[in-house]
Design a protein around this nucleic acid. Structure first.
Lengths: 338, 338
DNA sequence: CGACATCCCTAGATCGATCTAGGGTACAGC
DNA sequence: GCTGTACCCTAGATCGATCTAGGGATGTCG
């Protein structure tokens, strides 16, 4: 009989009929707003339970334009994005927000991903590591509040929540300097979100340590492959330490160095970035710079919800402090160079 | 003026007014169904373009219960799930399906993930690597068509699309056998989806090669950590080759072996599973067994769309052929054991 | 006892689309 | 000229919720 009866799921009308009250009262009770007697409250709850009623989100969202649904774009291939998404779900469960996910992939452009979220009339957009242009971002921001995580942009329409990547890079380099390294190279991230700041931080720290002459920029990227490909240049440069754009590229780099019989950290120390699963895993146990995903997620949600309904006040930049996590891919240099 | 006017997005009424036709005609034109003159078609398209109109998905879905929206659950931490999701988006773009994503994570149980999809009244569910019980799956299947990818279950209510993991495991083992290995261990996946079949395939292949006596099961799992932790047992067992549950655990294993000065593939050959980014990357360049994500995705979508409206016919099991990809973590055994 | 506030509840409009049913034209065939 | 038949178009119901406005009760106070 189950198969026959549940052709359609129970609606609010079914619940109202069973409880012997009006549709509106059911809505009142189930939303938990005042305006119903205890007796009726109980009846409605019971009826809803009996019918295992769950409100239809499509209708609920359509009903009143305060949807409390935020759209999130993220890169399917990017591990750290996954961790941020997790953090967003954690935070949104505490508050009363619904999230809607829209992935970005080589075959799915970010602009399509955001469009799909707008089609559902999300009340706000969280873009993780966006690579949209400033113009595209502002067009979006004209329609709906937008918060960037992990990426920054100079615009008074767009809030940004990010880690201080300059400081993060400096933490990494300072750590290496304190260990005694001088030939410290940076395998950078190219045009990826955050890469510019990490380059800047690297340069600053090197200069402050009086190591201007040792500044060595090596072409890299986001992926293991990019790190792998950078290894030859690292060896050629005679570096005793490397600060990599992120953990993934650091991992590829380490693999290649070890394969070339350049031990890590024996001959070369490596610092990653993100404290991703890879860095935490005993397989790498990588010294790295951690971003506080939970904080970033929470602040992003707070910003969005504070924007709802309000007209453009000035955009905010929330900047979180990074943290160095020392593990076993860094040590003192074996042979003092120069 | 932009900021002022677009407080609300354009609706179908706005388009109708601007084109000087009825709401219904706009709907007809924009859905591309017959029943409008060329003249009006042009007018509607123009009006829609002028207003940069995009239909409201909430309303569209609510309108008629043929929603063509399929829900997808996937593990945020699982790389291969990401690749399947990508493949699903690729396939669904060709056909006319919308996908709605719902992630599973340590803090977000799969049952919540599916519930959220049902709240949007998705017309079908695609569960990637589900770990729900048969009972839970069947409860879902009573409400809406369900297709499992990567995981299997014996039920006439639930379609399954998967790779033949038994055959995949056999490919891996046969490859090692042909290279001359005899002490071939299996670092298995525990209770993870597909793990049982891979164990079975391993055992079958070993027996057929007359290697019953060398069957060695080593506790593993899905992650790099699991592979890392298995390394000691592999060494202790004196294996010259390992077939791992997946690429991630293979990667952890390889790391640990190399760290222990057990060269790969010099002393130990390793075969992974999934042909994930990790396996493809030059950092590992791993021999592995590939699943055809695009085929799986396409078949899953086809199954779901064929189920729409139709009552339960018998569930289907689509089984795809795996493919061995030989790279550089396998070679002939250096020292013939025994 | 009438005025007024409070509390509980419901009818009906509304959100923005789709779909059904039926109303006009225009043209062909008898 | 009448009927039939395409073809094009629209009014209005519908989906399932929320929200507004207002209608009884009941109680309080002068």
């Amino acid at each position: 009989m189950d198969q026959a009866s549940d052709k359609r799921a129970a609606t609010i009308n079914d619940v109202a009929a069973r409880a012997g009250v009006s549709r509106a009262l059911v809505s009142i009770v189930l939303r938990g707003v005042p305006g119903a007697s205890d007796a009726n409250r109980a009846k409605v709850f019971q009826a809803a339970k009996d019918l295992s009623y769950r409100p239809d989100q499509r209708a609920r969202l359509l009903g009143r334009n305060r949807s409390t649904t935020f759209g999130v774009t993220f890169g399917l291939r990017d591990e750290t994005h996954g961790e941020l998404v997790e953090a967003l779900y954690r935070s949104s469960a505490l508050a009363d927000y619904e999230l809607m996910l829209s992935p970005v992939a080589p075959t799915r452009h970010e602009i399509d991903a955001t469009q799909s979220l707008l089609d559902y009339r999300c009340e706000g957009l969280i873009l993780i590591g966006s690579s949209l242009s400033k113009g595209e971002l502002e067009t979006l921001a004209d329609r709906v509040p937008v918060v960037l995580i992990t990426r920054t942009v100079h615009s008074d329409k767009i809030d940004v929540v990010r880690t201080d990547d300059i400081a993060g890079a400096r933490l990494a380099v300072d750590h290496l300097v304190q260990l005694g390294h001088r030939n410290i190279a940076h395998v950078h991230g190219g045009r990826v979100a955050g890469a510019a700041d990490r380059r800047t931080g690297y340069r600053q720290a090197m200069r402050q340590a009086g190591l201007d002459a040792h500044i060595t920029m090596i072409e890299g990227g986001r992926t293991e492959d990019d790190g792998w490909n950078a290894a030859q240049s690292v060896i050629a440069a005679g570096s005793t330490a490397v600060f990599a754009y992120n953990d993934q590229s650091a991992a590829g780099l380490i693999e290649h160095l070890r394969k070339a019989a350049v031990t890590v950290p024996g001959r070369v120390s490596v610092v990653g970035y993100d404290n991703s699963r890879l860095a935490r895993s005993p397989a790498f146990s990588m010294t790295t710079v951690a971003q506080d995903s939970d904080l970033l997620a929470q602040r992003a949600l707070e910003l969005l919800s504070s924007r709802r309904g309000t007209p453009h006040t000035d955009a905010e930049q929330v900047v979180a402090r990074p943290q160095l996590i020392t593990r076993s891919t860094t040590t003192t240099p074996k042979t003092s160079v120069r």
